[in-house]
């Protein structure tokens, strides 16, 4: 059972949280501009890396806030927790974010970049 540090409440058992899937999949600015294949990519295609992943968690039985987590899918080690509307700070998080296939996808090019704090 994971031990997750909610940025607002501190360390809690994972039964207080809901998993929210891959982080940084921004909703297309105008979905109507995408063809079926592109829209399916936004809707259905998820990264499934062995190693570092950036993902969203919700402290559903606590403060009900969403936040981002850097987790290693092999060891389950959590090395960074950062606010939902920001990018990762750590070296491995920044690297993973930059090298993720989504950064090169045509879908993301149509998205007006989020102004991360």
């Amino acid at each position: 059972m994971l031990y997750i540090e909610c940025p607002w409440c501190g360390f809690r058992d994972d039964e207080e949280f809901h998993y929210g899937g891959e982080a940084h999949i921004q909703r297309p600015t105008d979905p109507n501009e995408l063809n079926d294949e592109e829209f399916s990519e936004y809707l259905y295609l998820k990264s499934n890396p062995k190693g570092v992943i950036l993902e969203r968690w919700l402290h559903s039985r606590g403060c009900r806030r969403w936040f981002n987590v850097l987790r290693n899918t092999v060891t389950n080690e959590i090395t960074e927790i950062y606010p939902i509307d920001t990018l990762p700070n750590s070296k491995e998080g920044t690297e993973y974010y930059g090298q993720n296939w989504r950064r090169k996808s045509s879908v993301e090019k149509t998205i007006k970049p989020r102004e991360y704090k």
Binding site: H18, Q26, R56, L58, S60, R65, W66, I84, D85
Partner: peptide, 13 residues
């Protein structure tokens, strides 16, 4: 409620 919160917090803060 979760659904509303999710869109508000993650997409339209």
């Amino acid at each position: 409620l979760d659904w509303l919160e999710e869109w508000h917090q993650t997409e339209w803060p």
